[in-house]
Amino acid sequence: MLHYPLFTLQILQFFDAFSCIHCAMSTLLRPPPVDPSKSAIENVLELTQLSDIDPDLFSNTRPLWHPPGARGVYGGAVIAQCLSAAQRTVPKNFTIHSMHCYFVLAGNSEIPVIYHVEHVREGKSFATRTVQARQRGKVIFTTTMSFVREDSGGKLLLEHSTDMPDIPGPIEDNDDLRFPQGSDGPFLSQRVEILNNDSPNPHTKKTRQWIKARGEISLAGGHEAHLSALAYMSDSYFIGTIARVHKLWRYSSARAGNNKSTIDEEILKTLLAMDDESLKRVQGIDNHDIKRLRRIQNGEDTSVDLDPKPEVGMMVSLDHTIYFHNPRDFRADEWMFTEMETPWAGDGRGLVFQKIFSRNGKLIATCVQEGVVRLKQPTESKL
Protein backbone atom coordinates (compact mmCIF):
# COMPACT_ATOMS: atom_id res chain seq x y z
CA MET A 1 0.00 0.00 0.00
CA LEU A 2 1.32 3.45 -0.90
CA HIS A 3 1.78 6.05 1.81
CA TYR A 4 1.31 9.59 0.48
CA PRO A 5 1.94 12.79 2.42
CA LEU A 6 -1.32 14.28 3.72
CA PHE A 7 -1.10 17.29 1.38
CA THR A 8 -0.65 15.06 -1.66
CA LEU A 9 -3.64 12.96 -0.63
CA GLN A 10 -5.73 16.12 -0.36
CA ILE A 11 -4.61 17.21 -3.83
CA LEU A 12 -5.45 13.80 -5.31
CA GLN A 13 -8.87 13.92 -3.67
CA PHE A 14 -9.40 17.40 -5.11
CA PHE A 15 -8.60 16.27 -8.63
CA ASP A 16 -10.76 13.18 -8.22
CA ALA A 17 -13.68 15.42 -7.23
CA PHE A 18 -12.83 17.78 -10.08
CA SER A 19 -12.89 14.99 -12.64
CA CYS A 20 -16.28 13.80 -11.35
CA ILE A 21 -17.80 17.26 -11.67
CA HIS A 22 -16.26 17.85 -15.09
CA CYS A 23 -16.85 14.37 -16.44
CA ALA A 24 -17.20 15.71 -19.98
CA MET A 25 -13.60 16.97 -19.90
CA SER A 26 -11.02 14.44 -21.10
CA THR A 27 -8.08 16.62 -19.96
CA LEU A 28 -7.56 19.02 -17.05
CA LEU A 29 -6.63 21.83 -19.43
CA ARG A 30 -7.62 22.52 -22.99
CA PRO A 31 -5.20 20.55 -25.20
CA PRO A 32 -2.66 22.72 -27.07
CA PRO A 33 -2.29 22.50 -30.85
CA VAL A 34 -0.39 19.49 -32.16
CA ASP A 35 3.34 20.22 -32.14
CA PRO A 36 4.62 19.61 -35.72
CA SER A 37 8.21 19.34 -34.46
CA LYS A 38 7.27 16.13 -32.62
CA SER A 39 6.17 12.77 -33.94
CA ALA A 40 2.57 11.63 -33.69
CA ILE A 41 3.32 9.29 -30.80
CA GLU A 42 5.05 12.09 -28.84
CA ASN A 43 1.96 14.25 -29.20
CA VAL A 44 -0.32 11.37 -28.16
CA LEU A 45 1.74 10.70 -25.02
CA GLU A 46 2.34 14.32 -23.99
CA LEU A 47 1.98 14.94 -20.25
CA THR A 48 1.11 18.04 -18.24
CA GLN A 49 3.23 18.33 -15.11
CA LEU A 50 1.33 19.88 -12.21
CA SER A 51 4.55 21.23 -10.71
CA ASP A 52 2.92 24.23 -8.99
CA ILE A 53 0.99 21.75 -6.85
CA ASP A 54 3.35 18.78 -6.63
CA PRO A 55 6.31 18.02 -8.96
CA ASP A 56 5.36 14.34 -8.84
CA LEU A 57 1.83 14.91 -10.21
CA PHE A 58 1.08 14.65 -13.93
CA SER A 59 -1.98 14.41 -16.19
CA ASN A 60 -2.68 13.53 -19.81
CA THR A 61 -2.37 16.59 -22.05
CA ARG A 62 -4.52 15.13 -24.83
CA PRO A 63 -7.56 12.82 -24.81
CA LEU A 64 -6.77 9.13 -24.55
CA TRP A 65 -7.95 6.75 -27.25
CA HIS A 66 -10.85 4.40 -26.43
CA PRO A 67 -10.98 1.60 -29.02
CA PRO A 68 -14.59 0.92 -30.10
CA GLY A 69 -15.89 -2.18 -28.38
CA ALA A 70 -13.20 -2.08 -25.68
CA ARG A 71 -13.99 -1.75 -21.98
CA GLY A 72 -11.75 1.31 -21.58
CA VAL A 73 -8.91 3.36 -23.00
CA TYR A 74 -6.03 1.72 -24.86
CA GLY A 75 -3.79 0.27 -22.15
CA GLY A 76 -0.56 1.04 -23.99
CA ALA A 77 -1.18 4.77 -23.56
CA VAL A 78 -1.47 4.49 -19.77
CA ILE A 79 1.61 2.24 -19.60
CA ALA A 80 3.61 4.73 -21.66
CA GLN A 81 2.43 7.82 -19.77
CA CYS A 82 3.29 6.22 -16.42
CA LEU A 83 6.77 5.56 -17.79
CA SER A 84 7.04 9.12 -19.14
CA ALA A 85 6.08 10.54 -15.75
CA ALA A 86 8.55 8.38 -13.85
CA GLN A 87 11.38 9.15 -16.27
CA ARG A 88 11.03 12.84 -15.42
CA THR A 89 11.77 12.12 -11.74
CA VAL A 90 15.09 10.25 -12.07
CA PRO A 91 18.60 11.57 -12.89
CA LYS A 92 19.48 11.68 -16.60
CA ASN A 93 22.08 8.94 -16.21
CA PHE A 94 19.43 6.48 -14.93
CA THR A 95 17.45 4.42 -17.44
CA ILE A 96 14.43 2.14 -17.11
CA HIS A 97 15.25 -1.58 -17.17
CA SER A 98 11.96 -3.10 -15.94
CA MET A 99 8.37 -2.17 -15.25
CA HIS A 100 5.64 -4.33 -13.74
CA CYS A 101 2.08 -3.16 -14.35
CA TYR A 102 -1.44 -4.10 -13.27
CA PHE A 103 -4.63 -3.02 -15.02
CA VAL A 104 -7.07 -2.45 -12.14
CA LEU A 105 -10.11 -0.74 -13.69
CA ALA A 106 -11.09 0.30 -17.20
CA GLY A 107 -10.00 3.88 -17.93
CA ASN A 108 -12.62 6.43 -19.01
CA SER A 109 -11.56 8.48 -22.04
CA GLU A 110 -13.86 11.35 -21.04
CA ILE A 111 -12.14 11.98 -17.69
CA PRO A 112 -8.58 13.24 -17.03
CA VAL A 113 -6.10 10.72 -15.66
CA ILE A 114 -3.98 11.83 -12.70
CA TYR A 115 -0.56 10.16 -12.42
CA HIS A 116 1.25 10.27 -9.09
CA VAL A 117 4.90 9.20 -8.93
CA GLU A 118 6.20 7.88 -5.61
CA HIS A 119 9.97 7.88 -4.98
CA VAL A 120 10.41 4.43 -3.44
CA ARG A 121 14.20 4.20 -3.54
CA GLU A 122 17.18 6.38 -4.47
CA GLY A 123 20.20 4.06 -4.68
CA LYS A 124 23.68 4.43 -6.14
CA SER A 125 23.00 1.96 -8.95
CA PHE A 126 19.23 1.55 -8.90
CA ALA A 127 16.22 3.80 -8.35
CA THR A 128 12.65 2.62 -7.87
CA ARG A 129 9.42 4.44 -8.70
CA THR A 130 5.78 3.48 -8.28
CA VAL A 131 3.14 5.27 -10.35
CA GLN A 132 -0.60 5.15 -9.79
CA ALA A 133 -3.08 6.33 -12.41
CA ARG A 134 -6.33 7.53 -10.85
CA GLN A 135 -9.82 8.54 -11.95
CA ARG A 136 -12.85 9.39 -9.79
CA GLY A 137 -11.04 8.57 -6.56
CA LYS A 138 -10.03 5.10 -7.71
CA VAL A 139 -6.78 3.60 -8.96
CA ILE A 140 -7.26 2.35 -12.52
CA PHE A 141 -3.64 1.30 -13.13
CA THR A 142 -0.51 0.82 -11.05
CA THR A 143 3.10 0.10 -11.97
CA THR A 144 6.44 -0.27 -10.23
CA MET A 145 9.55 0.58 -12.23
CA SER A 146 13.25 0.07 -11.66
CA PHE A 147 15.89 2.36 -13.17
CA VAL A 148 19.60 1.55 -13.41
CA ARG A 149 22.53 3.96 -13.53
CA GLU A 150 24.23 3.95 -16.92
CA ASP A 151 27.41 1.79 -17.08
CA SER A 152 26.91 0.59 -13.49
CA GLY A 153 27.75 -3.00 -14.49
CA GLY A 154 31.46 -2.27 -14.77
CA LYS A 155 33.93 -2.80 -17.60
CA LEU A 156 33.95 -6.61 -17.40
CA LEU A 157 30.49 -7.88 -18.35
CA LEU A 158 28.73 -11.23 -18.63
CA GLU A 159 26.67 -11.11 -21.83
CA HIS A 160 24.44 -13.29 -23.98
CA SER A 161 21.27 -12.75 -26.03
CA THR A 162 18.85 -14.76 -28.13
CA ASP A 163 19.05 -14.28 -31.91
CA MET A 164 16.37 -12.67 -34.03
CA PRO A 165 14.69 -15.11 -36.44
CA ASP A 166 15.79 -14.97 -40.06
CA ILE A 167 12.74 -13.42 -41.71
CA PRO A 168 12.05 -11.03 -44.61
CA GLY A 169 12.43 -7.36 -43.73
CA PRO A 170 9.56 -4.85 -43.82
CA ILE A 171 8.31 -3.45 -47.12
CA GLU A 172 8.19 0.32 -47.31
CA ASP A 173 4.81 1.96 -47.99
CA ASN A 174 2.95 -1.31 -47.46
CA ASP A 175 1.74 -1.04 -43.88
CA ASP A 176 -1.05 -3.04 -42.27
CA LEU A 177 -4.40 -1.39 -41.73
CA ARG A 178 -5.18 -0.84 -38.06
CA PHE A 179 -8.78 -0.53 -36.96
CA PRO A 180 -10.13 1.81 -35.91
CA GLN A 181 -7.04 4.05 -35.94
CA GLY A 182 -6.28 3.38 -39.59
CA SER A 183 -3.81 5.77 -41.18
CA ASP A 184 -4.17 8.21 -38.28
CA GLY A 185 -2.59 5.88 -35.72
CA PRO A 186 0.71 6.93 -34.13
CA PHE A 187 2.60 3.84 -35.30
CA LEU A 188 2.88 1.54 -38.30
CA SER A 189 2.93 -2.25 -38.51
CA GLN A 190 3.43 -5.03 -40.99
CA ARG A 191 2.36 -8.56 -40.21
CA VAL A 192 4.56 -11.56 -40.92
CA GLU A 193 2.96 -14.97 -41.52
CA ILE A 194 2.27 -16.85 -38.28
CA LEU A 195 4.93 -19.49 -37.66
CA ASN A 196 3.45 -23.03 -37.53
CA ASN A 197 0.02 -21.60 -38.30
CA ASP A 198 -1.34 -24.99 -39.43
CA SER A 199 -0.22 -26.75 -36.26
CA PRO A 200 -2.97 -28.21 -34.05
CA ASN A 201 -0.96 -27.04 -31.02
CA PRO A 202 -1.48 -23.32 -30.26
CA HIS A 203 1.58 -23.19 -27.98
CA THR A 204 3.89 -23.98 -30.92
CA LYS A 205 2.72 -20.98 -32.97
CA LYS A 206 4.37 -17.56 -33.05
CA THR A 207 2.71 -14.36 -34.26
CA ARG A 208 5.16 -11.86 -35.74
CA GLN A 209 5.16 -8.31 -37.06
CA TRP A 210 7.30 -5.28 -37.84
CA ILE A 211 6.41 -2.07 -35.99
CA LYS A 212 7.67 1.50 -35.74
CA ALA A 213 6.47 4.92 -34.62
CA ARG A 214 5.05 7.07 -37.40
CA GLY A 215 7.29 9.95 -38.51
CA GLU A 216 10.50 10.88 -36.69
CA ILE A 217 10.80 11.18 -32.92
CA SER A 218 12.26 14.58 -32.04
CA LEU A 219 15.80 15.09 -30.81
CA ALA A 220 14.37 16.94 -27.81
CA GLY A 221 12.46 13.81 -26.79
CA GLY A 222 15.74 12.00 -26.12
CA HIS A 223 15.98 8.29 -25.41
CA GLU A 224 13.02 8.69 -23.03
CA ALA A 225 10.64 9.35 -25.93
CA HIS A 226 11.79 6.19 -27.72
CA LEU A 227 11.28 4.11 -24.55
CA SER A 228 7.78 5.52 -24.00
CA ALA A 229 6.93 4.84 -27.65
CA LEU A 230 8.13 1.25 -27.31
CA ALA A 231 6.01 0.83 -24.17
CA TYR A 232 2.98 2.18 -26.07
CA MET A 233 3.44 -0.24 -28.96
CA SER A 234 4.17 -3.25 -26.74
CA ASP A 235 0.48 -3.55 -25.80
CA SER A 236 -0.74 -3.80 -29.39
CA TYR A 237 -2.53 -7.14 -30.04
CA PHE A 238 -0.62 -8.65 -27.11
CA ILE A 239 -3.22 -10.75 -25.30
CA GLY A 240 -4.95 -11.03 -28.68
CA THR A 241 -2.21 -13.51 -29.61
CA ILE A 242 -4.22 -16.20 -27.84
CA ALA A 243 -7.27 -15.59 -30.01
CA ARG A 244 -5.11 -15.64 -33.14
CA VAL A 245 -3.32 -18.93 -32.42
CA HIS A 246 -6.65 -20.57 -31.52
CA LYS A 247 -8.25 -18.96 -34.59
CA LEU A 248 -11.14 -17.69 -32.51
CA TRP A 249 -13.82 -15.46 -33.95
CA ARG A 250 -13.56 -11.91 -32.54
CA TYR A 251 -16.03 -9.96 -34.68
CA SER A 252 -19.53 -10.93 -33.57
CA SER A 253 -22.34 -8.91 -35.09
CA ALA A 254 -25.85 -8.44 -33.72
CA ARG A 255 -27.19 -8.57 -37.25
CA ALA A 256 -25.46 -11.91 -37.83
CA GLY A 257 -27.82 -13.74 -35.50
CA ASN A 258 -26.09 -12.85 -32.22
CA ASN A 259 -27.79 -11.14 -29.32
CA LYS A 260 -24.96 -8.67 -28.77
CA SER A 261 -22.34 -7.20 -31.05
CA THR A 262 -18.70 -7.30 -29.92
CA ILE A 263 -17.46 -4.99 -32.66
CA ASP A 264 -18.32 -1.44 -33.58
CA GLU A 265 -20.88 -1.67 -36.38
CA GLU A 266 -19.15 0.99 -38.49
CA ILE A 267 -15.90 -0.98 -38.35
CA LEU A 268 -17.73 -4.17 -39.29
CA LYS A 269 -19.34 -2.33 -42.18
CA THR A 270 -15.91 -1.20 -43.38
CA LEU A 271 -14.49 -4.74 -43.09
CA LEU A 272 -17.38 -6.21 -45.05
CA ALA A 273 -16.78 -3.74 -47.87
CA MET A 274 -13.10 -4.71 -48.28
CA ASP A 275 -11.77 -7.31 -50.69
CA ASP A 276 -9.76 -10.31 -49.49
CA GLU A 277 -6.35 -8.81 -50.27
CA SER A 278 -7.11 -5.69 -48.25
CA LEU A 279 -8.48 -7.76 -45.37
CA LYS A 280 -5.21 -9.70 -45.20
CA ARG A 281 -3.46 -6.43 -44.38
CA VAL A 282 -5.77 -5.68 -41.46
CA GLN A 283 -4.02 -6.23 -38.12
CA GLY A 284 -5.59 -9.18 -36.29
CA ILE A 285 -7.51 -10.58 -39.29
CA ASP A 286 -6.66 -14.10 -40.52
CA ASN A 287 -8.09 -16.42 -43.17
CA HIS A 288 -10.66 -17.88 -40.78
CA ASP A 289 -11.91 -14.35 -40.02
CA ILE A 290 -12.19 -13.58 -43.74
CA LYS A 291 -14.31 -16.67 -44.31
CA ARG A 292 -16.57 -15.67 -41.42
CA LEU A 293 -16.92 -12.13 -42.76
CA ARG A 294 -17.97 -13.49 -46.12
CA ARG A 295 -20.65 -15.62 -44.43
CA ILE A 296 -21.97 -12.53 -42.63
CA GLN A 297 -21.87 -10.62 -45.92
CA ASN A 298 -23.92 -13.35 -47.59
CA GLY A 299 -26.47 -13.34 -44.78
CA GLU A 300 -25.61 -16.90 -43.71
CA ASP A 301 -26.15 -18.16 -40.18
CA THR A 302 -22.65 -18.07 -38.71
CA SER A 303 -23.75 -20.13 -35.72
CA VAL A 304 -23.90 -23.08 -38.13
CA ASP A 305 -20.43 -23.35 -39.63
CA LEU A 306 -18.68 -26.06 -41.60
CA ASP A 307 -15.66 -25.41 -39.36
CA PRO A 308 -17.24 -24.12 -36.14
CA LYS A 309 -15.02 -22.10 -33.83
CA PRO A 310 -15.77 -20.69 -30.37
CA GLU A 311 -16.20 -16.95 -30.08
CA VAL A 312 -14.39 -14.63 -27.71
CA GLY A 313 -16.82 -13.41 -25.07
CA MET A 314 -14.34 -11.31 -23.09
CA MET A 315 -10.68 -10.50 -23.60
CA VAL A 316 -8.91 -7.96 -21.38
CA SER A 317 -5.38 -7.51 -20.02
CA LEU A 318 -4.69 -8.12 -16.33
CA ASP A 319 -1.00 -7.32 -16.06
CA HIS A 320 1.90 -6.26 -18.28
CA THR A 321 5.65 -6.54 -17.71
CA ILE A 322 8.45 -5.07 -19.83
CA TYR A 323 12.17 -5.80 -19.45
CA PHE A 324 14.26 -3.28 -21.39
CA HIS A 325 17.59 -4.81 -22.43
CA ASN A 326 19.33 -2.13 -24.50
CA PRO A 327 17.31 0.96 -23.57
CA ARG A 328 19.63 3.55 -25.17
CA ASP A 329 20.59 1.56 -28.24
CA PHE A 330 17.53 1.63 -30.50
CA ARG A 331 15.12 4.02 -32.18
CA ALA A 332 11.37 3.45 -31.92
CA ASP A 333 10.83 5.34 -35.19
CA GLU A 334 12.83 2.69 -37.05
CA TRP A 335 11.49 -0.76 -37.81
CA MET A 336 11.45 -3.22 -34.90
CA PHE A 337 10.53 -6.89 -35.10
CA THR A 338 8.20 -8.48 -32.53
CA GLU A 339 7.48 -12.15 -31.95
CA MET A 340 4.75 -13.40 -29.60
CA GLU A 341 3.92 -16.86 -28.31
CA THR A 342 1.61 -18.24 -25.65
CA PRO A 343 2.79 -21.14 -23.48
CA TRP A 344 -0.49 -21.57 -21.60
CA ALA A 345 -4.19 -20.77 -21.46
CA GLY A 346 -6.79 -22.08 -19.04
CA ASP A 347 -9.33 -21.19 -16.34
CA GLY A 348 -10.48 -18.17 -18.35
CA ARG A 349 -6.98 -16.66 -18.58
CA GLY A 350 -3.99 -16.82 -20.88
CA LEU A 351 -0.29 -15.93 -20.85
CA VAL A 352 1.74 -14.41 -23.70
CA PHE A 353 5.48 -13.76 -24.11
CA GLN A 354 6.83 -11.15 -26.52
CA LYS A 355 10.35 -10.45 -27.77
CA ILE A 356 11.17 -7.15 -29.50
CA PHE A 357 14.28 -6.75 -31.68
CA SER A 358 15.82 -3.75 -33.41
CA ARG A 359 16.14 -3.86 -37.20
CA ASN A 360 19.77 -5.00 -36.89
CA GLY A 361 18.76 -8.01 -34.74
CA LYS A 362 19.52 -6.73 -31.23
CA LEU A 363 17.09 -7.87 -28.52
CA ILE A 364 15.79 -4.64 -26.98
CA ALA A 365 12.85 -5.82 -24.85
CA THR A 366 11.08 -8.88 -23.49
CA CYS A 367 7.44 -8.53 -22.42
CA VAL A 368 4.97 -10.73 -20.55
CA GLN A 369 1.21 -10.29 -20.31
CA GLU A 370 -1.59 -12.26 -18.66
CA GLY A 371 -5.19 -11.53 -19.48
CA VAL A 372 -8.76 -12.70 -19.17
CA VAL A 373 -9.75 -14.76 -22.22
CA ARG A 374 -13.28 -16.07 -21.82
CA LEU A 375 -15.33 -17.77 -24.48
CA LYS A 376 -18.90 -16.89 -25.28
CA GLN A 377 -20.93 -19.51 -23.47
CA PRO A 378 -23.79 -21.38 -25.19
CA THR A 379 -27.25 -20.16 -24.30
CA GLU A 380 -28.97 -22.65 -22.04
CA SER A 381 -32.51 -23.47 -23.08
CA LYS A 382 -35.15 -22.79 -20.44
CA LEU A 383 -37.51 -25.66 -19.70
Rank of each mutant, 00 (worst) to 15 (best):
H3W: 00
F7H: 15
F7E: 15
T8H: 01
A17K: 04
R30Y: 04
P31A: 10
P31K: 11
P33F: 05
P33A: 10
P36H: 10
V44M: 10
V44R: 15
E46H: 12
L47Q: 05
T48Q: 13
Q49K: 11
S59G: 12
S59P: 05
P63I: 14
L64A: 12
L64D: 08
A70L: 04
G76E: 08
A80P: 04
L83F: 08
A86D: 09
R88I: 03
T89H: 04
I96D: 01
H100E: 14
C101S: 15
V104E: 09
L105E: 14
N108H: 14
V113A: 11
V113C: 13
H116Y: 11
R121P: 01
R121E: 08
R121A: 07
F126G: 00
T128Y: 04
T128Q: 03
F141L: 02
F141V: 00
T144R: 02
M145I: 05
R149H: 10
S152I: 07
G154N: 06
L156A: 09
L157Q: 15
L158Q: 13
H160G: 13
T162W: 12
I171H: 12
D173L: 01
D176G: 15
F179Y: 13
P180Q: 01
Q181Y: 01
S183L: 11
E193W: 01
I194H: 06
N197H: 02
P200K: 00
K205S: 06
Q209M: 15
R214A: 15
L219N: 09
L227C: 12
I239H: 07
G240Y: 08
W249T: 06
N258C: 00
K260H: 05
K260P: 00
S261C: 09
T262D: 12
E265S: 13
L271K: 09
D275W: 02
L279F: 08
G284S: 06
D286F: 04
K291H: 12
R294F: 02
R294T: 06
I296C: 05
T302L: 14
S303P: 02
S303T: 15
D305M: 08
D305Q: 12
M315H: 01
V316G: 03
Y323T: 00
F324W: 11
N326F: 04
F330K: 01
W335F: 05
M336E: 03
F337Y: 14
E339A: 08
M340Y: 07
E341Y: 09
W344Y: 10
A345Q: 13
R349A: 02
L351M: 13
F353C: 09
N360D: 15
G361M: 10
I364E: 11
Q377H: 05
T379E: 13
